[in-house]
Each structure stands twice: as structure tokens, then as C-alpha cells.
């Protein structure tokens, strides 16, 4: 029974409550780092790490929180883990760290993380918070990768920097620019609307 509930929490993050496609949260990184798959994946994994750590810590100290100091506590927790993630990337993935630049520290102000801390972790037991973080993080990462795959394929004809399109393919430079991000995500959301309208 409990297992079933956890499973439900996890899948909710993937589709039903997908942070990007359904809740429209955390749009900055979604648009900014999806020009190629590799940075998008790195960003997604960093978000999963930060989200999981912050949800676990917040869930552990939920009884100690005072209502008016709550947000302060959340930001403190989140920024600590973001700094750790940033240091890790700078030490072990210097290329990715340079490519993502200020968007890694900007995870601090990603609404998904503070939103989950507020809506889920500060009310739920440890296991539920953990699974919720993993589900939401996975949903975020998958969306990011889907968007990045479309953009990288169309703007350079490559996936993960490996050429996959035939030689006659003419790259659409616009897909790598800001406009490509906005329009692709807009069309993706329209697609989601189309699917959910029918069911």
C-alpha cells in the first residue's frame, strides 16, 4: 500500500505534475541551457541533486521550523547545496561548468526547489519527500533533455555532439538562439494541451 503511494508520487512528477510542462516552474534554465543535450543533462542532474538534498534536509527539520523563518531556512539550505554542486562541477567537469556559467548558481532561485520544499517536504515524512524530489527532478530533467534534443538536432544536426543528420541537412541556426528556445517550448506546451484535452 505504502509502496503504491510512493510510486504514485514518483510518476506524478513525471507527467501529471511535471514541473515544466504542467506547473510552468523553473523556466529560466529550461530556456537557457537547452541549446545542446550535454549542458541540459548536466543541469538536470544538478537540479536532481539539489532538490533531493534540500527536500531531505527540510523534511528532517520540519518540526523545528518557525513559520516566519521558514523561507529563510529554505534558501539557506538550497544555496548551500547549490554551492556544493557548483564546486563539484568546477572541479570535475570544468568544461560543463564554463558552458553553464551563472545558470548553476541560479538553481538557488529555481522555483521548483523552493516550491517543493514548501509544498511537500515541510509537510511530508522523509520517504515521501525523497521520492517526490526524485520524481520532480526526473520530470524536469526529461523535459529539459527533450527540448535540448530537438534544438540541438535542428540547430547543428548533432545529438550529444555526434553528427546524426545526413550531409544535405541545413542547420537552422535560429534554433540555437533564444527564439528557438521560446518557440520550441511554446509548441511543446501546445502539444501537451492537445494530448490532455483529448483524454
Amino acid at each position: 500500500m505504502a509502496e503504491q503511494r510512493l510510486q504514485k508520487t514518483f510518476t506524478a512528477g513525471l507527467w501529471q505534475n511535471n514541473p515544466v510542462l504542467r506547473l510552468l516552474l523553473g523556466m529560466c534554465p529550461v530556456l537557457a541551457v537547452t541549446a545542446a543535450l550535454k549542458p541540459a543533462l548536466t543541469m538536470g542532474l544538478s537540479v536532481i541533486f539539489v532538490l533531493t538534498c534540500s527536500n531531505v534536509v527540510v523534511s528532517l527539520m520540519k518540526h523545528l521550523l518557525k513559520p516566519h523563518l521558514r523561507i529563510l531556512m529554505f534558501t539557506l539550505t538550497i544555496s548551500t547545496f547549490v554551492t556544493i554542486a557548483d564546486l563539484y562541477l568546477r572541479a570535475f567537469q570544468p568544461e560543463m561548468s564554463a558552458a553553464l556559467g551563472p545558470y548553476i548558481p541560479l538553481i538557488i532561485v529555481n522555483c521548483i526547489i523552493i516550491g517543493r520544499a514548501e509544498a511537500c517536504a515541510s509537510k511530508s515524512p522523509l520517504m515521501v519527500s525523497l521520492v517526490d524530489a526524485l520524481g520532480m527532478g526526473a520530470g524536469f530533467t526529461l523535459t529539459l533533455c527533450a527540448l535540448a534534443a530537438v534544438r540541438e538536432l535542428l540547430s547543428t544536426g548533432k545529438l550529444f555532439e555526434i553528427t546524426v543528420m545526413p550531409s544535405w541537412f541545413m542547420p537552422w541556426a535560429a534554433m540555437g538562439m533564444p527564439v528557438g528556445a521560446f518557440v520550441t517550448l511554446g509548441l511543446m506546451l501546445a502539444g501537451v494541451n492537445l494530448i490532455t484535452r483529448k483524454t
Binding site: 521560446f182 511554446g186 509548441l187 494541451n193
Partner: peptide, 10 residues
Amino acid sequence: VMQGAPITLV
């Protein structure tokens, strides 16, 4: 299907 967020993004 384009109403709301999608058209805003485009």
C-alpha cells in the same frame, strides 16, 4: 491548444 502559456512563449 495554443491559448495561454504556449502563445505567450511564441
